[in-house]
Design a protein around this nucleic acid. Sequence first.
DNA 1: GGTAGCACTCCCCCGGCACGAGTGCCAATC
DNA 2: GATTGGCACTCGTGCCGGGGGAGTGCTACC
Lengths: 341, 341
Amino acid sequence: MSEDRRLDVLRAIVEDYVATREPVGSRALVERHALGVSPATIRNDMAALEESGYIAQPHTSAGRVPTDKGYRLFVDRLTTVKPMSVPERRAIGAFLEEAQDLDDVVDRAVRLIAQLTQQVAVVQYPSLRRSALRHVELVPVGARHLLVVLITDTGRVEQRTIELGADLDEVVVGQLRARLNVSAAGRRLSELPVALAELADAFGPSDAALVEAVVGVVEETLAQESEERVVLAGTAYLARGGAVDFAGSIGPVLEALEEQVVLLRLLSEMAEDNASVAVRIGRETQHEGLLETSFITSGYGDENGTSVARVGSIGPLRMDYPGTMSAVRAVARYLTRILAG
Amino acid sequence: MSEDRRLDVLRAIVEDYVATREPVGSRALVERHALGVSPATIRNDMAALEESGYIAQPHTSAGRVPTDKGYRLFVDRLTTVKPMSVPERRAIGAFLEEAQDLDDVVDRAVRLIAQLTQQVAVVQYPSLRRSALRHVELVPVGARHLLVVLITDTGRVEQRTIELGADLDEVVVGQLRARLNVSAAGRRLSELPVALAELADAFGPSDAALVEAVVGVVEETLAQESEERVVLAGTAYLARGGAVDFAGSIGPVLEALEEQVVLLRLLSEMAEDNASVAVRIGRETQHEGLLETSFITSGYGDENGTSVARVGSIGPLRMDYPGTMSAVRAVARYLTRILAG
DNA sequence: GGTAGCACTCCCCCGGCACGAGTGCCAATC
DNA sequence: GATTGGCACTCGTGCCGGGGGAGTGCTACC
């Protein structure tokens, strides 16, 4: 029994099942694919594939359906990411380049992915922690409030207000601003604490409170997990065709998607994958509500390996893996290019 | 035939249908409510109510179901908004007061409403147009970029970057900042254009480009419709119990909710209602996807009449109107109090 | 190893039927 | 005139049984 053909059979099953949503039987398989053997032979192969856990029958005397494991083998070995067509690429680039600011870029990207994949799209805001600081601004607001504005190289702007015990000294604020920018600009936020630690020494004890407060706020801001935001679009695609793809309604899926924590965990796990495109299939998401979904993401935001955040698409197990992977990767690349420019 | 009893019957039908999701018949009605008459009498009343369009039968030989018009009469005349209990109020206040900044307030509010109403919650960010300006800041970023930061009295912070044709003159920027704050602070954004118009005259022609650019950006920012953001939570509630409440899947509803434009239109229309709580039932939403939903909102953000934005809850036609109305109103009031404080 | 045939299983669809809930109408009653 | 009880009628729903079809596993054969 040829090992190669067995993999061909698995690929054919995945492709047919994705296309038709129907369990696929041996006869249909030989009819639709040039396998060169008879249904009976295929049946033997299918029995072996089932034995190994790559496919399963919903019930006796039904066709076969890929399992999580089957999809995994499919994406790992049976498919090559097909590049997008030139017009598609051009459209993606043009659409994203029209964006005005970071919010707009993110918004366009998420809509674009939803549109391209016809699935739920996810875009993570550029992580503060992994961005480099471009500028720090201190803005007195009234006598006793100071607004701290951080601007990153990805265009993200964060601000915090500090309430002070004493009235502000404009001169000191000016000095602090200058110092901050010297020691901070161009650095990754993760390297900042070291640079900031010595800052306090440069000022007299009378200003210690101010310096401390500002430094504290800057560090706190970059450490704040909650500022890791994700944006969604296309949730309506989950309900397509009466939510046929989800046995137990789409409620749990929507719940999972609203839990930013869940998505952030997944995104950070997938960042470890070291692949241009990361895939989580069914159970691999490690989350109850996402058991019947697959999640495909790609990093963006830095030319070399380390990305500052991720974009992705979530759909039913029964999804177009090659298509989704290439769409997600394409958008991630354009994002990277735009944020760099 | 008593007109009063007929309204009682309508109320009973709405209440029963909301509670059971089953069309309600005459017998069930007399059993569950102390109407003091026989089923046959109720049948006559029901025939009259149907004649007037307040109720309808899904099919012959089924019970009655309220129509949009029936729900409308119910909320207008047959229900009084019951206040929330003291512990509930206390919990709401406590939860909202823990918030750190405006984003956090909005986030907490939207989750709170979703939780309280067990429906989709909507919170609109305080409108720029209707807020007052607290402070304008100009921040040079590099030699040729200027960051404009607007801070409103509701704590909202907006920023834009300007690219300039010539290098910046720090002194002029300083003067402009001072002037801007004098003429702008405390004003509603809608009154600003007038105040800004005369500003250009105070500077020499060499700085005209700069002044013009800054004024342009400020005006543009406040005019920008797209900056009217809304935040959602609880979309998973739509799918509760297999989306029984929505004949044609929840897809169209999700689509409508993702269209910020749709929600913003509705919110602004409802702001005209001059009621503490505004209600749109089914068709009244004027949107295809929301035909089978009702939308309840309340304004917040200003002690006297004019609110700066709205909060609301969207659920099936068959929803707990009194409960939702009181929850939405309560949250709106606490929001107002917190933003003022 | 591949193939053909065959018996078997099980889902799905359909028609028929009884049941129950609910109505509308009418005549009788207060 | 409003209310009521009775009654025939309608229609959706659940249940049952049977036919058709798709697909499988097994075995014997090339």
